[in-house]
Design a protein around this nucleic acid. Structure first.
Lengths: 231, 231
DNA sequence: ATCAAATGGATACTGCGCATCCGTATAGAA
DNA sequence: TTCTATACGGATGCGCAGTATCCATTTGAT
């Protein structure tokens, strides 16, 4: 991962920048400046640009760390005996992570990254997510047509709700509303339950893992937040 | 609404601009330029700025029209005999509208507007949404603790999912994936069902209408897309 | 002691969205 | 038909924000 060998101070500053990057991006989103990160790290802008050629590089490095955390959650989930509890643990923990980290959320929700990074990330995590879904399905605790991609979209939904809530002001007499997304997480979990599956089949098929991947792998877009093809 | 009296050509251009604004914002989102709208309307930029002092004014005017459409859907829903069908009709139609209109979606999902406009819009629509929820609740087709604000967040969730899907490329051999959000709409509808309500109470209370309103009424932010308080 | 490596931060550059300005054209009243 | 207030078009100026560089100075390693 790290290049060859760095001088002691250089290595220290690199670490500081990574740390600062995580904090700044978590709080202000990926639109934060590399200059911002440098300041937050107590380091000159020049130094920042020598350690990471551009913001994208820093983001890639951070993403690698984040993927480790997600993988840990998935492994913890898969180690559990009860498939339902495993499913719940994964969703709750993964979503909580994204909700606390705006940058991470943007990475999941559409922000384009270098395709190789996207691919690597996916190859590592997707199979685990699929297995979580599979176990729950085989155990009959979720409807038979539920898939791993459903879990992803379910997360996206919850995170989006949380974003809307967080962008607003603190609500009077109820500042704990950062939890609100959990209400809808549980509505959806109830909806995944097999009970009603026979009476109301879902109107649209789930995406396959490949389709989801294709969806999230559009050509990298220098422009950040909300790209859109023009007419 | 319209000022006093406009010269014939001026009135015509105003109408064209409104029309063009709807189209452009629907397609490219509210970040599109007033200059863009002017060109799309086949009108000079100067004309655009004479009819609408700034982009915000144009958006307000458009929003008024959109609220009419939403109100129509709500009335159609409330006129139906079956509360469940009414609920489904409202959600399906309202979400479909937002999915086809990126600007409208941004208006619902966090984009700040002039408080008066926000208030007016809310005072018109919120009671109707609440009534849709109330009817379904009283009929026992959704869990007893479901509220109108739940319907709003459910919409936000679906719209967000759709946004993620749309921002990606067309999926091979399945370009109809614009419907994917409906899969999750129905998962959530199943989740609202009273069946499981007794075994698993939701972990977080719904917001009251007032709380939701407070949430969506942050001080107007000149900056658009994704404002966030800094440290 | 020596020097390659690293540092900091002022600053140039670039691109973009907003809005104005003014010479020209037109509606519509007299 | 004449006349003038109104409207038109679009080139252009302004300001801002993010990116990245440059270079005089300091620091680490041998």
């Amino acid at each position: 991962m790290t290049d060859v060998k760095l001088r002691k101070d250089a290595a220290r500053n690199r670490a500081r920048l990574l740390e600062a990057g995580r904090e700044v991006f978590a709080q202000r989103g990926l639109d934060a400046t590399l200059n911002d990160v440098a300041h937050h790290a107590g380091v000159g802008v020049g130094t920042a640009y020598r350690r990471f050629a551009n913001k994208e590089d820093l983001i890639d490095a951070i993403r690698y760390e984040q993927d480790n955390e997600l993988e840990a959650i998935l492994n913890e989930s898969l180690a559990m005996g009860d498939p339902w509890d495993a499913l719940v643990l994964y969703l709750e923990k993964s979503i909580a992570l994204h909700v606390k980290d705006r940058g991470m959320a943007e990475l999941l929700t559409g922000r384009r990254v270098r395709p190789e990074v996207q691919d690597q990330s996916r190859n590592r995590l997707a199979p685990l997510v699929n297995r979580v879904a599979e176990r729950a399905r085989d155990a009959g605790v979720i409807r038979a047509d539920a898939t791993g991609t459903d879990l992803i979209f379910l997360q996206i939904a919850c995170i989006s709700i949380s974003t809307v809530v967080q962008d607003g002001p603190e609500i009077e007499e109820r500042s704990d509303s950062g939890d609100l997304y959990r209400r809808y997480l549980w509505v959806m979990l109830d909806g995944l339950t097999p009970q009603r599956a026979d009476t109301t089949p879902l109107p649209v098929q789930a995406l396959t893992t490949e389709q989801l991947h294709a969806l999230l792998s559009a050509p990298i877009n220098a422009d950040n937040s909300h790209a859109r093809r023009s007419t």
